[in-house]
Design a protein around this nucleic acid. Structure first.
Lengths: 214, 214
DNA sequence: TCAAGATCTGACCGCATAGTCAAATTTTAG
DNA sequence: CTAAAATTTGACTATGCGGTCAGATCTTGA
């Protein structure tokens, strides 16, 4: 018998347990990306994974729990990649630019992740209320960016920008392009969009260039 | 008996026909916005509208057709509002700024529209393939913005920017903020975000300027 | 080796859904 | 006014879903 309710933290996540969960999550992402969430039934995911439907119920408390795990995976992967890239730089501007570049680089190699993510954006809890998952999901990114900007502003490296708002807008530009690209891959050139955002944002936060303090 | 297949165009959309369709579409939007698409069954929409479920089937070919009409409504309304606002200006910069401002103004007064829209973004056709609806939906906005920018560039009013890409990025920033706002109304101040985007975009497209206001 | 637990199977259940339809009711038009 | 057409009702069907479960199979550890 398995239980999600261990006394304190995880007790013993079996080898098989971990592997199966990973497999099911991964297959779930692929299924959502290729057929849409509405077609991603437990039966279909199980079929694609080559396992019985009961296995999913055995390893996950329910579909809700599986989708939560999928969402966590979709958010964790790019976050880790981006943080690593940002950490290679010291200056605020370098970090900011690396943040934007890493976002686009991850996009290019993980399209399915974002197609699935957009598909899950519309999700709500079973009850009527809003799922706070999405709200909490984008907050860390804003906070992380704001931290970078704030450090640069303190050091006089950047303009006196409203860091929280600027962080929000920078993330918005990235997300917005990603959305258009998910909807129509042909219509958006990620490299060109990345360069444009980099230029625009750099102009926006730099103290001099051609502009000056607000 | 009613038929969607008239010889050429609509023949005679009855009074009741039009009114009922409007009512059902509007109730559908409210239902999706308040309870999520997954809870927006035909039965629930009918209940909220105070009509029998069969009425929906009578006036719409199926749920797919209803959702298509809802999407068209969600896209048409802001588009009309924004175009009117933009048309009041003559300069490219004026039109560009009016475009951004009108987007945010419409958002503030029509939150349900955007909550519903985000909920419908993940939709696909019943078959596996991608719904081209979303792809086609954002294209007109990009085209419209690009037209404004191009005119301004030709006239020397704006920098030599890549108009299509800039249009895409400007729209992206708006959409991205809208998304964050839909997910977490408290976390986003639309007025502040609007001002920030206006400043950033103005700096980006202006030939020189040291960052002044309109 | 072998018992105990972990994992898996496939049939099954209850339920919500989209869609149908004959009959009832309302609106239209001559 | 009245008959035909348009509209509405509510019960009905078929389908697919998430979830359950008894029993089969595999893994582990002493």
């Amino acid at each position: 018998m398995r239980s999600d309710l261990e006394p304190a933290g995880q007790k013993k996540p079996t080898f098989i347990e971990e592997a199966r969960r990973r497999q099911i999550v991964e297959t779930g992402i692929q299924t959502i990306a290729s057929q849409g969430f509405s077609q991603a039934s437990l039966a279909e995911i199980a079929r694609k994974a080559g396992i019985s439907k009961g296995v999913i119920s055995y390893h996950f408390a329910g579909k809700e729990a599986l989708v939560d795990e999928i969402l966590r995976s979709l958010l964790r992967q790019p976050a880790e990649f981006i943080k690593e890239r940002v950490s290679r730089h010291d200056s605020a501007l370098g970090k900011l630019r690396a943040y934007i570049e890493a976002n686009f680089e991850f996009m290019k190699t993980h399209r399915d992740n974002y197609v699935a993510l957009v598909d899950l954006w519309g999700r709500r809890g079973s009850s009527g209320g809003h799922s706070s998952f999405n709200a909490e999901a984008h907050e860390p990114a804003r906070h992380y960016l704001a931290h970078i900007l704030d450090a640069g502003r303190e050091r006089g490296e950047l303009r006196q920008i409203p860091v929280r708002t600027t962080a929000s807008v920078v993330q918005a530009a990235i997300d917005g392009v990603m959305l258009q690209w998910v909807f129509d891959e042909e219509a958006i050139d990620l490299d060109v969009s990345r360069a444009e955002i980099l230029e625009m944002v750099t102009r926006h936060v730099m103290p001099q260039a051609t502009g000056e303090l607000r």
